[in-house]
């Protein structure tokens, strides 16, 4: 016995030495289920979508009950059914769908132009230290500047049309994407960088094959923020200045309806905005994430 309490520490409790024993035969048979499936009801209730749908229905029911039960003035708060019917009518029997398309078109042009510019800036930043410093400077300055604040200037420079909208959209996308991509690149682990160099990757190949995939979580985060800013800027710009750009988009539809105190159309417009937002965030971006960073186990 090598571990003995040293002399003078007699007060310490002593090890109690007991006889050993072994179980020769473990009765496996008595155990009914080592692992069994949960009941069907338990499993259905465990599906997040089911519970969320129930809550959504409850919210809608509460809204409907409140407006109908308390006889709320429809001009202030129309009931859910009226708003929903209005949405249905305007989508299928009126020109709401064209207004949506008009907004989406402008959004896509602005968003992709912003991405291309961001990519060019980032390439420059990875190639030269001056470029890197410039990006750091420019993003620090322009990222906190709400794109919509540039709209008055844009209208002065590009007139009242689509060009102004695209300009502010580019501004809203460019800096958010550049900022997070740049910091994503800087945070690529030295090990991965060395691996890339080890296998002889240089220049654009090094960027595309090592930096971009390694920094994809932050690039995607930047693209999501950029999308959120762009979407907000576009709706804001149309709400505010849509009047002047003629054809009018979704934001303009909301603004026009509210000017006419056509509240159920305002709600129909808001529904459309929400639906489109959900599609982009939960379908488009979610799928990109599932196929890339989630599959690679890289999501934060």
């Amino acid at each position: 016995m090598s571990i003995k309490p040293p002399a003078g520490k007699g007060l310490l409790p002593k090890l109690v030495i007991r006889p050993e024993y072994e179980v020769s035969d473990i009765a496996q048979a008595q155990i009914s289920d080592v692992a069994h499936k949960l009941s069907l009801a338990e499993r259905i209730w465990n599906i997040n979508g089911v519970r969320k749908a129930v809550i959504l229905l409850a919210l809608v029911a509460a809204w409907q009950a409140y407006t109908v039960g308390f006889d709320v003035e429809p001009l202030m708060l129309p009931s859910f059914s009226i708003s929903f019917m209005r949405l249905y009518n305007d989508l299928f029997y009126s020109d709401l769908i064209y207004k949506v398309w008009f907004s989406v078109k402008v959004l896509l042009i602005g968003y992709s132009a912003g991405l291309v510019l961001a990519a060019l800036l980032i390439l420059w930043a990875t190639a030269t230290r001056f470029g890197s410093d410039f990006i750091a400077m420019a993003t620090a300055m322009f990222n906190p500047l709400p794109a919509i604040a540039l709209l008055p200037l844009a209208m002065l420079w590009f007139g009242l049309g689509t060009a102004s909208l695209v300009f502010v959209l580019i501004h809203s996308v460019l800096w958010a994407v550049a900022l997070s991509t740049h910091s994503g690149f800087e945070n690529v682990s030295p090990t991965l960088r060395m691996i890339g160099r080890n296998y002889g990757l240089r220049g654009i190949f090094y960027v595309l094959k090592i930096l971009v995939p390694a920094a994809l979580p932050s690039i995607l985060a930047g693209m999501k923020i950029g999308w959120a800013f762009a979407w907000r800027t576009l709706i804001g710009a149309e709400l505010v200045f849509g009047a002047s750009s003629g054809s009018g988009g979704l934001g303009w539809y909301i603004f026009e309806s509210s000017q006419n105190i056509d509240t159920d159309a305002v709600f129909a417009g808001l529904f459309t905005v929400i639906l489109f937002g959900i599609v982009v965030e939960n379908v488009v971006f979610r799928n990109i994430e599932l196929r890339t960073v989630n599959r690679w186990g890289m999501q934060q």
């Binding site: 090598s2 030495i17 007991r18 050993e20 024993y21 072994e22 179980v23 155990i31 080592v34």
Partner: peptide, 12 residues
């Protein structure tokens, strides 16, 4: 599942 197989001494 975990079941006791033996209890042994190792103090030595």
């Amino acid at each position: 599942p975990g079941q006791v197989k033996a209890e042994l001494n190792a103090h030595h």
